[in-house]
Amino acid sequence: MATLSPLTQNAPLYRNLVRREVRQRYKGSVLGLGWTLLNPLIMVGAYWIVFKFLFGSPIPNYALFMFVGLMVWTLFYGGITVASSSLVANASLVTKVRFPREIIPLASVTANSVIAGAMLVIAVPLCVILGSGSLMPLVLLPVFLALAALLTIGAGLVLSALNVYFRDVEHVLAAIGIPWFFLTPIFYTYSTLPESAKSHQLLVDLLHYGNPIAPFVIAVQDVLFFGTWPTLADSLYCVVAAVAMLAIGVWTFRRLENEMAVEL
């Protein structure tokens, strides 16, 4: 990729931006990075009460199951959210200094992935200890996480560039966040749906493959939580979606990059 050489040249700027963003997020708070883990744990606790205690989900180790899905969701949705507003937030840099602009959304996505990384550190040993499946599929975990990261970067590039021209983008993202979260199989699986839903297989498939992040969540749940090999359909979907999204992201960003300094 021709874009890589200016990126390596600007590695110090990228590192500084990541560091700044990570530290900025928790600067002045007593718990600091502790919030990284406390936030998802509180969410998992609440959802456990609703979906396990009140609705009686059949999934074993339900809290851990949700935690794994939430990790992928955090990586993706958290990443595109911070990326979308990143260029506008760093307008003073974009309008005053010359450097490859993609560094800014890239640094935001990276800083956000620190949170997902912390969740991963907790999730992996727990899944190994509590899980009943095979450990072999774990070898695919880095692959799927990397693909999810590429998807996030691609989408982040598109959204950050669009947000420069239409500030609605970040508001749209915020508005669709919770519905999207509920439509993503994070606290349920498609195999444990009630009969009423199973009779509408087409609709379920639409929810599954029409939601770009769903196959990633399912694949990571498969290899990490259930200890099974992901389906071929999900695996292929992940590869194609990640590569395509990244290509779209780079292309869109290139197209919109030139006039950014004027627009901001």
Binding site: L13, R15, R20, Q24, G28, L93
Partner: peptide, 18 residues
């Protein structure tokens, strides 16, 4: 450009240098 008010002078020097 690029100074962040909440960071110390030293931290901003690194950022600005970058």
């Amino acid at each position: 450009a690029g100074f962040h008010p909440d960071f110390t002078g030293r931290e901003n020097v690194f950022m600005n240098g970058a």
